[in-house]
């Protein structure tokens, strides 16, 4: 087996890359080494055969197009590099605009809004946990109603603000109603206490205002 330096010299000799001194020394070795000489002849014959079957120069097919594509690719890489150096906000804006240009963006957006709407509406219509005030109307001037659910009290609150105060000297009294009977024919309801005694009768007048009849004086 030849050492690597010998193979290297053989190839340089074959390619004509040796100077005069190197060439003289190598040709002296060829005379002294028949094996090396035989290998050199074989390689030289092979090289000559290849040259005979290939043209001296090969033209690159569609060279102009090939070069232009390389230049375009280089330009794109330069642009990408510049964009990556820009701020994150700009990149997000570009991404968002790119999304908005997608043909399916309008449909997807409408579906997303519909889902959000359903989620938003759900607590008002399907909440099973607590009582709800759906709407309120306060006929009195300056009276306002606000409503909310207080989680700590676990109660729904309807707060009436702006009501006229009850005079402090007015006596407010309550009753304890345990049972009632309604007479639809005369739209009257009789309220009874725990002992079954009637407390009062309530009905409506011609304009819908409540009418009370009681056997005990008020207050």
């Amino acid at each position: 087996m030849k050492p690597p330096s010998e193979d290297h010299d053989l190839i340089r000799w074959l390619d004509g890359e040796m100077n005069d001194t190197e060439l003289a020394a190598f040709e002296a070795r060829l005379k002294d080494d028949p094996v090396l000489a035989k290998e050199a002849d074989d390689l030289r014959a092979l090289s000559a055969g290849i040259r005979d079957h290939l043209p001296a120069e090969m033209k690159v097919p569609h060279a102009d197009f090939f070069n232009s594509q390389i230049q375009v690719r280089i330009a794109q890489m330069d642009l990408d590099e510049i964009r990556q150096k820009q701020t994150g906000a700009t990149s997000l804006a570009d991404s968002f605009l790119a999304w908005m240009r997608k043909p399916w963006f309008a449909t997807a957006g409408a579906v997303a809004l519909a889902v959000l709407g359903l989620v938003w509406m759900r607590p008002h219509t399907q909440d099973t946990a607590h009582s709800l005030i759906l709407s309120s109307y306060t006929p009195g001037l300056g009276v306002e109603a606000s409503t909310y659910h207080d989680n700590e009290a676990d109660a729904t609150v309807l707060m009436l603000d702006g009501l006229e105060e009850v005079p402090a000297d007015r006596k407010i009294s309550g009753i304890s109603v345990h049972r009632s009977e309604t007479e639809p024919e005369i739209a009257a309801t009789t309220l009874f206490d725990a002992a079954g005694s009637p407390l009062l009768v309530i009905s409506r007048d011609a304009v819908g205002h409540p009418l009370f009849l009681t056997n005990t004086p008020r207050g």
Partner: peptide
């Protein structure tokens, strides 16, 4: 004083 449409749930009081 006020007219309201409401949904009352059992056990969930309304404070007015």
């Amino acid at each position: 004083l006020v007219k309201s449409d409401a949904v009352l749930r059992p056990g969930s009081p309304l404070f007015i």
